[in-house]
Design a protein around this nucleic acid. Sequence first.
DNA 1: TTCATTTCTTGCCATATGACAAGATTTGTT
DNA 2: AACAAATCTTGTCATATGGCAAGAAATGAA
Lengths: 195, 195
Amino acid sequence: MTENLDQHFLNKVFEASGITKEELKSILPKYKQVTFIKNDYLLKEGQVEKKYWFMESGFVRSYIIDTEGNDITFNLYASGDVVIDYPSIFFFAPTRENIQALTDCVCWEITFEDFQEMFNSISSFREQQRSLLVGSYFALKQHSISLIADEAKVRYLRFLKEKPQIIQNVSLKHIATFLGITDTSLSRIRKEILS
Amino acid sequence: MTENLDQHFLNKVFEASGITKEELKSILPKYKQVTFIKNDYLLKEGQVEKKYWFMESGFVRSYIIDTEGNDITFNLYASGDVVIDYPSIFFFAPTRENIQALTDCVCWEITFEDFQEMFNSISSFREQQRSLLVGSYFALKQHSISLIADEAKVRYLRFLKEKPQIIQNVSLKHIATFLGITDTSLSRIRKEILS
DNA sequence: TTCATTTCTTGCCATATGACAAGATTTGTT
DNA sequence: AACAAATCTTGTCATATGGCAAGAAATGAA
């Protein structure tokens, strides 16, 4: 890992958030580049998450197994996204969620300790991280409203528009459960859209 | 407002969060007791939220009007809950949501400035407020999964168990849209449960 | 290339829930 | 008390989506 090149990706992540170059010098070294290969688990049900990741490349899926044993995709992540289970990491609670690499991935990992230390000492980092959390909350809120208010076709079309690269790289059955429908229904919806 | 008595409620809110008596002396005065009467709006679509509330008594509903003009309850609040639209307050963004008192309410109001100042200067306050946000995120996550994985009857029964006081005090049509169904369906589900 | 596995599509039928409308009941107002 | 308005229930019918299974297509392994 050549230090200068490695930092390129995170520089891009942080540059828009009012963090100074000086602060970046203490922030960036806390992030470690890690790679996952297809099917690796970033987090498994029952574990307490102690670190989280910025994704540089690849695709990741989080899912839960519901009470009837169904596999339900809770979220799909791509380049630029933050992969984190907030409740587990902040409450030191065993997660109910599995997070798995769908493809080989390059990620930037930070431990909760390092995060916590910088969150308390660097106010611009604090603002940026809080924004990420609120942004996740907002996205989840939109998704939740969509599940109630929109029919499945609309949810699919919206997702297609917002995350085309995910539609192209993730299998339909995973996208379907994320949208709250079966793969069969999604297949029919796609057929209907084509005509 | 007699200072000593007024603070009783917030003392209870803060006491479990490791905030010292000393710190409470600077925190509590920032909260102002306010009352809303039935049908008052705490927040209206298009506004930027600049304060938020701890509820001491009463019931509050947040709702959005979707693209087809349907009124959809997004959340229902009761005593002890925090009434806040995180994305609006943190991003200074006009909200899409309406927040309205369903009954007369007593609340404790804090402005975003005061919040922000204490968030940056008092670490235990910061932890407590971050926990509230993560807790909201977690609740929303559970609700979202339930919308996908559970049939309507299960969602109703779970809500009935978790928030019985809301079921007893809020009209069915509001509870129904919160659960993602129509009031007609909810009425049938209730009938079915009785037998 | 060949075979096995996974993914996607399609058909048939079942079912949960919605749309609409009419009563019944409750609540609020004067 | 008496009326109006809002809320809740119920009936009939429509429809989006699910369950299951079979085949087609794509992917991966040897």
